[in-house]
Simulated scan of single mutants.
Amino acid sequence: MTKLPKGVDQLPSGKYRLRKMVNGQMLTALFEEQPTQREVMRAVNDLLRETSAAILKGSFLDYAEKYIKAKENVLSASTIRGYRATLRGLPNHFTSLPIKDITQYTLTALVNDMVRSASPKTIYNRHGLIVSVLHEFRPELVIRTKLPRKVQKDIYTPDDEEIRKLFSYIDSTPNFKKYWVPLYLAALGLRRSEIGALTLSDLSHDNILTINKAKVQDSDNNWVIQNFTKTERSNRKIPIPDELATRIREQGCIYEGFLGKVYDTMRMAEKTLGLPHFGVHRLRSYFASKAHSLGLPDSVILKLGGWKSDNVMKNIYRKALKEDLHRESEKFLSHMTEIS
């Protein structure tokens, strides 16, 4: 006699009974013959579907709101804001569906429709939220949706000369001068949200900057200071140059104002100087690529930049190295054209 699957016993009548506790529910099924493990799993999934159908009464939107509400105190305000924006982007014909009626085919059809009007990244985000909600309230539903292939964006990372021009212009323009410090900090690897939350008390007497909070927008578009950063490893202490520390103390703050103005100022400076467009976050990319080219160990770059893993960090400087190779190749080809 083969071993009975876990949770199955044989009754005096000769039949086989499955008793299994799943998500606080005791599921029971009878079999005329000894079931295989696959038959047991099929029975469990069938029972879960029946139970869900009996319990789940609302629409997908109802349960998505419940899911987001339950996460409000454990996730950052910006993440919750992102969830709500993603939810608003889903079509009404989907969010109004009873959650118990959603199937794999429903998701496949939804993705197929969204391909016409949304980018692959947006579709990934929307599908990710849907899957999270369904896993929470429909754990028996197996989801294997084929998603569109992500498009690799050509993200520009500035070189040393472009950085020098930008900082020189910002520093010499009276209306832009106050943005020199936050942009310099971005080039040291800080995120915009981290820069916005910094105060003078975060700068020690020996010029060590403590990064342990973030300034983000909540679901109502209000700016709030949250007492944690993007990831667990983002809390860090970094040394900053004496010149930067002196300027911070002289101006009496790190940055006070609307964070969007930092981006706007940088955009105006780029246009004036004729530089390629690169946002504030690309200064963080510059930090990673430059630190790598100077020979800093990956573990040090990871710590200074507050990345959770080295995957994103390495992709950043690999991309920058490709751009350097392209630029240098163009210089060589130009040289060859001149001498031919």
Rank of each mutant, 00 (worst) to 15 (best):
residue 299 S to K: 07
residue 222 N to A: 14
residue 83 Y to D: 08
residue 171 D to A: 15
residue 186 A to F: 01
residue 153 K to G: 12
residue 29 A to C: 05
residue 170 I to Y: 12
residue 181 V to Q: 02
residue 53 A to F: 09
residue 290 K to W: 09
residue 130 I to T: 01
residue 229 T to I: 08
residue 191 R to V: 01
residue 199 T to G: 13
residue 230 K to A: 05
residue 29 A to W: 10
residue 202 D to N: 12
residue 67 Y to P: 01
residue 8 V to D: 00
residue 53 A to T: 08
residue 80 I to N: 04
residue 61 L to Q: 07
residue 237 K to N: 14
residue 28 T to Q: 12
residue 323 E to W: 13
residue 132 S to L: 14
residue 18 L to M: 08
residue 106 T to V: 03
residue 321 L to F: 14
residue 244 L to I: 09
residue 175 N to M: 05
residue 41 M to V: 14
residue 328 E to A: 15
residue 179 Y to D: 01
residue 167 F to E: 06
residue 53 A to M: 08
residue 7 G to Q: 13
residue 227 N to C: 10
residue 261 K to N: 10
residue 149 R to Y: 14
residue 189 G to R: 00
residue 169 Y to F: 15
residue 208 I to H: 11
residue 104 Q to N: 11
residue 23 N to K: 11
residue 4 L to S: 00
residue 143 I to K: 02
residue 122 T to P: 04
residue 269 A to E: 04
residue 90 L to D: 03
residue 124 Y to R: 15
residue 230 K to M: 06
residue 279 G to A: 05
residue 283 L to W: 09
residue 224 V to K: 02
residue 235 N to T: 08
residue 228 F to Y: 12
residue 130 I to K: 00
residue 60 F to M: 02
residue 320 A to M: 07
residue 217 Q to F: 14
residue 278 F to K: 03
residue 177 K to A: 09
residue 297 P to D: 09
residue 125 N to H: 14
residue 26 M to W: 13
residue 154 D to T: 13
residue 99 I to S: 00
residue 291 A to Y: 00
residue 115 V to Q: 14
residue 172 S to G: 14
residue 318 R to F: 13
residue 169 Y to N: 15
residue 55 I to C: 05
residue 8 V to T: 01
residue 234 S to T: 03
residue 286 Y to K: 02
residue 32 E to V: 05
residue 149 R to A: 15
residue 102 I to S: 01
residue 108 T to G: 05
residue 145 T to W: 09
residue 311 N to R: 13
residue 43 A to D: 01
residue 174 P to H: 11
residue 207 N to V: 03
residue 68 I to F: 10
residue 234 S to Q: 03
residue 221 N to I: 10
residue 226 Q to L: 08
residue 189 G to I: 03
residue 96 S to F: 06
residue 289 S to I: 09
residue 182 P to Y: 06
residue 337 T to Q: 08
residue 268 M to F: 04
residue 56 L to R: 02
residue 326 H to F: 13
